[in-house]
């Protein structure tokens, strides 16, 4: 099988203050596993951007992180409004974030492009009215 670790996190969509907790937990775990600092940072930033997205755009969701010998796969799943035009959402600067979200320091439309930049593979599956699943893979050399 090769898979040796799985971590599951629930991401609370009601609580902006606690947003990012799953990413903090993941980062601690990756450190404990002794992964290279640069790999940890890439995964942490990608996970954090995705986690914040689930909180500010989708009312929360869940994260599953599978750690294999040669790769780490992060799956972020929510039951929010979905993304109608994924190509548009992927564009730098595109954001539907409200003024309220912006005043909290987010909503520049940089998160999804940043997640793509920091991972080796990223796939978005989304259905309007049903939710969004973002799958990101980072290979360990």
């Amino acid at each position: 099988m090769g898979e040796y670790l799985n971590f599951h996190y629930d991401v609370d969509g009601e609580n902006f203050v606690s947003a990012g907790q799953a990413s903090v937990e993941l980062k601690k775990t990756l450190r404990r596993l002794g992964l290279p600092p640069e790999t940890i940072r890439r995964l942490s930033i990608a996970m954090y951007e995705g986690e914040i997205n689930m909180v500010i755009h989708a009312g929360g969701g869940e994260a599953d992180v599978d750690i294999y010998e040669d790769k780490i796969v992060i799956v972020l799943k929510d039951h929010g409004p979905g993304i109608a035009d994924i190509a548009l959402a992927m564009q730098e600067g595109y954001s539907t974030a409200t003024e309220g979200v912006r005043s909290l320091g987010f909503g520049a439309g940089m998160g999804l492009p940043n997640m793509k930049r920091y991972t080796d593979e990223m796939q978005i599956d989304s259905t309007v009215g049903e939710g969004t699943t973002v799958t990101m893979t980072v290979y360990l050399s």
Binding site: F16, A19, G20, I52, L104, G105, F106, M110, N114
Partner: peptide, 21 residues
């Protein structure tokens, strides 16, 4: 958002924003 997207290797963050994020 900008810090996450544009900053590289900066060790210190100066900000006027106050929240846990």
């Amino acid at each position: 958002s900008d810090v996450l997207a544009y900053v590289k290797d900066q060790a210190v963050l100066l900000t006027g924003l106050v929240n846990s994020q």
